[in-house]
Amino acid sequence: MSEKLFLITEGEISIQEVVDKVVHRNAGAINTFIGTVRELTKGKKTVYLKYDAYTSMAQKKLAQIGNEIQERWPNSLVAISHRIGHLDVTDIAVVIAVSTPHRADSYEASRYAIERIKEIVPIWKKEHWADGEKWMGDQLEKTPYPTGKPEEEHLND
């Protein structure tokens, strides 16, 4: 287990461990988002996934998201772990935990975190199907970044 609030790891993620990092006497609400490997995407059957990351930068960018949340939602605490390497269907890829004094903020801040992860954190997913494989994220397809940086969400899922 790691004490790091913002962690890229090759090991299995314990939900409880991520949640424990944001427990606080003045938190009444903890929202947790758990991303799991889904079998079916647009009718294609995933056999397994591989995640790659620019680990040091990814941890920095997760920490940046944590800072952004603490500026927007006062008295929040944030922890995020993202797994890389080989993941099977139903395995946990990411756990986000946000604690806040009141519940509405915990939902909003948690949602913000997952959207930002999909915008700025250098992690990549390769889908492996029975009949092929492909790096996801539109890498050779339609979405260039006109400003050189990702400023909006380009991926809906």
Binding site: A53, E119, V121, P122, H154, L155
Partner: peptide, 10 residues
């Protein structure tokens, strides 16, 4: 320097 193709974490 790092080239960062469109990310697909989460």
């Amino acid at each position: 320097v790092a080239l960062i193709p469109p990310v697909s974490g989460g």
